[in-house]
Every structure is written in structure tokens, then in C-alpha cells.
Simulated assay, not measured.
Amino acid sequence: MELVFSGQVIEWRGPSPYFFVPVPEEESADIREVATMASYGWGVIPVQARIGEVSFRTSLFPKEGGYLLPLKTAVRGPQGLSAGDDVTVEMTVRLQT
């Protein structure tokens, strides 16, 4: 499943700060339809994503009926991304076979 969406980088200030892009509701609904074929446990969904020139693998975190795309420093750093920045995400949900 391939998706393209735009969103704003948010910061979660827990014990360790972390950055995410919330997946919009429409795309989250599409992901929920294939979640059982994609998740390898705890509701996380493996994806291949691209923001700008940076391509990366990660897993979506389920949150309040939607999903959050985590952004490691290796993804944010080269593009100078921080909380509040708008980004376009190209993402492929990696289905388990």
C-alpha cells in the first residue's frame, strides 16, 4: 500500500523528546484496513518512507485511532526539520508475507 500525505512535525516531550508526523485520518483509515496483514505486534505498522531526499524504514505507532510516523535525528538532521515544519511524506506499508 502506497500513500502520500502532508503533515506537520510535532514533538513529544516524554522522558526522551521525540518527533513525529501524524498520519491524516483518511490515510490512517486505509492503514487500519490492512493492519492485521502488516503489524508484527503491539499494533505497530512497518513502513518505508521518504521525506525530501531522505528514505528510511521505521514503524508507525498507533495513537488514538490514528498513527504517528517517527522521525529520527538521521531523518530530520539532513533537512533541518524541527517541530512545526510542514512536510510531504511518501510512504509504503510493508505487508507481512
Rank of each mutant, 00 (worst) to 15 (best):
S59A: 15
G80W: 01
K72G: 10
F61H: 08
V54N: 04
G80E: 05
F56A: 07
L69M: 10
K72D: 08
D85N: 11
T88A: 13
A49W: 06
S55K: 12
A49E: 04
P62Q: 13
L71W: 13
S59N: 11
V89F: 03
Q48W: 07
V87T: 11
R50Y: 02
A83H: 03
G52Q: 12
I45M: 01
I51Q: 01
L60F: 06
V75M: 09
K72E: 11
P46F: 10
K63D: 11
F56R: 06
P62S: 08
S55I: 04
I45E: 01
S55V: 09
G52K: 05
V89S: 01
Y67G: 03
G66P: 02
T73L: 08
E64V: 15
A83K: 06
E53C: 02
P78R: 11
R50H: 09
T58R: 09
G77A: 14
A49G: 14
Y67L: 12
V54W: 00
G80H: 06
L69G: 00
R76P: 00
T73C: 03
P62Y: 08
G84M: 14
S59V: 09
D86G: 08
L68C: 05
V87D: 13
G43Y: 02
Q48K: 14
L69I: 06
E90K: 10
V75L: 13
G43S: 08
E64A: 14
I51A: 01
R50C: 04
K63G: 06
A49K: 12
G80R: 05
A83C: 09
G52W: 10
I51V: 10
F56H: 07
P78D: 05
G77Q: 15
R76W: 11
P62A: 14
L81W: 03
V87I: 13
A74D: 06
S59G: 11
G52D: 15
L60V: 03
L81K: 04
Y67K: 09
A74Q: 14
E53T: 02
R76L: 04
L60T: 01
P70M: 12
F56L: 06
G43A: 04
G80T: 03
V75G: 05
E90N: 12
